[in-house]
Design a protein around this nucleic acid. Structure first.
Length: 296
DNA sequence: ATACCGACCTGTCAGC
DNA sequence: TGCTGACAGGTCGGTA
């Protein structure tokens, strides 16, 4: 469900709450669909690790971890059924540390929740990390399209950050591509973080139809698209993202950008600029919304 | 390369 | 009340 602005909002909330805290133990559920690394790898990596910070890479949440190898990990909590994987014993020099990254992708319906340990465990909870502060960090995902993974080296999902990339580099990504521009915008290996809502909204602002082939778009229009994507994402971040159905950030707050949607979810309603009924077409299996008058 | 499709999952809502 | 189908913010893999 979450795209760049929602993940950014969640990451900021998580950063405020868990930076500097330490994961003392972890429980991982049995649903393997949500695990990209094995449960043992995840447990081994994050148990006993201090959270140095939380950042976003595209739609991924990245926890930067550091483990002091000279401190023995806390005893595992075994009350939730699954025995914690055993940690590898190793001899470490005093003060020796190991850094790692814990990466969470929320898929369509994933949530990261920081709560008290006595808070009710939501259905579809797949991971519970107990923190030294006494709170818990939980991953909940009904549809299980989300993914949990750990990396020893810096995590890089590929693609460029739309809010960091220069206009020239942005435009160059699409050069000569015959694919519909919306498909290209959704391709995370090109631009990372743009999803269905913000692709539609950006294309509306840029006056470009979703099916338009990238190779037929002029340099000037690409300049407009570059600006539009960045404006839309920045405005959405400022409003805490878009809340549709059940999205909430790490503090349980809803975003408000959905009130600014010009085309997404507005099939049949009048275009806010010209009054033409907004159309919905299916492109690569995704609903695409546009104004046939404002977008060419 | 690209484009289209189904698959992966559960939940919700509209319509009958 | 309950069934059915469509649809949902994402991504991957197969096939032409």
């Amino acid at each position: 469900m979450p795209e760049l602005p929602e993940v950014e909002t969640i990451v900021r909330g998580l950063g405020r709450r868990v930076t500097g805290d330490t994961i003392t133990s972890v429980w991982i559920g049995s649903r393997k669909q949500v695990l990209k690394s094995t449960a043992a790898e995840i447990a081994r990596t994050i148990e006993g690790a201090k959270i140095l910070g939380v950042h976003r890479a595209g739609k991924h949440i990245v926890f930067s971890l550091e483990k002091d190898l000279t401190i023995a990990p806390a005893p595992h909590r075994r009350s939730r059924g699954r025995p914690a994987p055993t940690l590898v014993k190793r001899n470490a020099e005093p003060g020796e540390t190991e850094s790692a990254q814990w990466v969470v992708h929320l898929g369509m319906t994933g949530r990261m929740v920081v709560c008290e340990p006595d808070a009710e465990i939501a259905k579809h909870t797949h991971l519970i990390a107990t923190l030294a502060s006494g709170r818990e960090l939980r991953f909940v995902d009904p549809r299980m399209f989300g993914k949990l993974s750990v990396y020893a080296a810096a995590f890089d999902p590929g693609g460029v950050e739309p809010l960091d990339v220069s206009e020239e580099n942005f435009v160059a990504l699409f050069h000569g591509r015959k694919t519909p521009i919306k498909s290209a915008l959704l391709n995370q290996k090109l631009v990372r973080g743009v999803g269905n809502i913000y692709a539609d909204e950006s294309l509306f602002r840029a006056g470009i139809r979703p099916r338009r082939r990238a190779a037929t778009i002029t340099r000037q229009q690409f300049g407009k698209l570059y600006q539009s994507v960045r404006e839309v994402l920045r405005e959405a971040i400022a409003l805490g993202g878009s809340s549709i159905s059940d999205y909430v950030d790490a503090d349980g707050e809803e975003g408000f950008f959905q009130l600014q949607h010009q085309v997404y979810g507005r099939e049949g309603e009048p275009c806010l600029v010209c009054g033409t009924a907004i159309r919905r077409v299916v492109l690569t299996g995704r609903s695409s919304h546009y104004c046939s008058n404002c977008q060419k």
